[in-house]
Amino acid sequence: MQTQSKIVDLPEFNVVIFSFLLNFIWEMWQIPFFMAIPNGTHWAGVVACTQATFGDAAISIVAFWCVAAFAKSRRWIIKPSPSQIGSFVMVGVVITIAFEAIATVLLDRWSYSPSMPTLPILGTGLLPVLQWILLPPLTIWFVRRQLT
């Protein structure tokens, strides 16, 4: 039983859990803004959103570790400075813009519906970028509540 309590005390574990939960809701909400998913089966949408959410959780943990490397502490998330919060957000935004470009342009893995607002010049969907501006601070808030 003691091993279990140690796992839940790890900042990384909490980042992954809360990031997964928040991002899954976001992924499901933004389904109408992507092509094919709104016309597919319900299960296909759930599977696609779950896969995307695993990617979101991975981006969150990479962003967490980037900030931890600069902070020289994995516990930075307990009392994050504004620059640490901003760095956490920005790492996610940069990775998201890169992944969206690779997926939509180079690999043609998915495409946006006409209702998806996009960023000028980049063509990246606005909703995936907003996801990485709005959800990381919420993730930090939940993790802090859990660990303190």
Rank of each mutant, 00 (worst) to 15 (best):
V105D: 00
R74W: 10
F20E: 09
A103R: 01
Q2A: 07
P136R: 07
G125T: 00
W29M: 14
I37T: 14
D56T: 06
R109D: 05
A63G: 08
V93D: 05
Q84P: 00
W132V: 09
Q30T: 07
L122G: 04
F20G: 10
A36T: 11
T104G: 00
S81Y: 06
A68H: 07
L107K: 02
T104D: 02
V89M: 15
V46M: 14
G92Y: 00
W29V: 10
I133F: 09
T104N: 01
T118W: 03
T148F: 09
I121R: 04
L119H: 05
S111D: 08
T104H: 00
P117E: 11
V93Y: 00
F64G: 01
A68Y: 10
I61F: 02
I85N: 06
R109K: 09
P80F: 01
I102N: 00
F18Y: 14
W76N: 03
L10C: 03
G92C: 10
V129Y: 00
G92T: 01
I121Y: 05
A63E: 01
M116D: 05
L135C: 11
N23Q: 11
T148H: 14
I97G: 01
I102C: 00
N23P: 12
T104M: 01
K6H: 08
G86H: 02
P38C: 14
P137Q: 05
L22S: 14
D9I: 02
S113N: 07
F88K: 07
A98H: 02
F24T: 13
S111C: 07
L135F: 08
Y112M: 04
W76F: 02
V91C: 10
L130C: 15
P117W: 05
F33G: 13
M90E: 04
C49K: 12
V16S: 15
L130R: 04
F18H: 15
L119K: 04
I140D: 08
F18K: 00
I140Q: 00
T139Y: 01
S81Q: 02
E100K: 01
S19N: 02
A68P: 10
T118P: 07
S73R: 09
L22W: 15
M1L: 13
A52L: 15
I77H: 06
A52N: 08
L122F: 04
Q131L: 05
A68Q: 13
A98M: 02
L21I: 06
I25N: 09
M1Y: 02
L130S: 07
E12T: 13
I95M: 04
S83I: 12
A63H: 11
P11G: 03
L130V: 08
R74L: 13
P82Y: 04
V143F: 12
W43G: 12
L106G: 04
I78G: 06
F24Q: 09
G55R: 08
A101K: 04
P120H: 09
L134V: 15
A101C: 12
L107C: 07
L130K: 11
Q146S: 14
S73E: 06
F54A: 14
W76Y: 07
A44M: 13
S19H: 10
I78W: 08
P11Q: 05
Q131D: 08
F18E: 14
L10I: 10
L130P: 04
Q84E: 13
I17E: 11
I31Y: 05
I7C: 09
K72R: 15
W65Q: 15
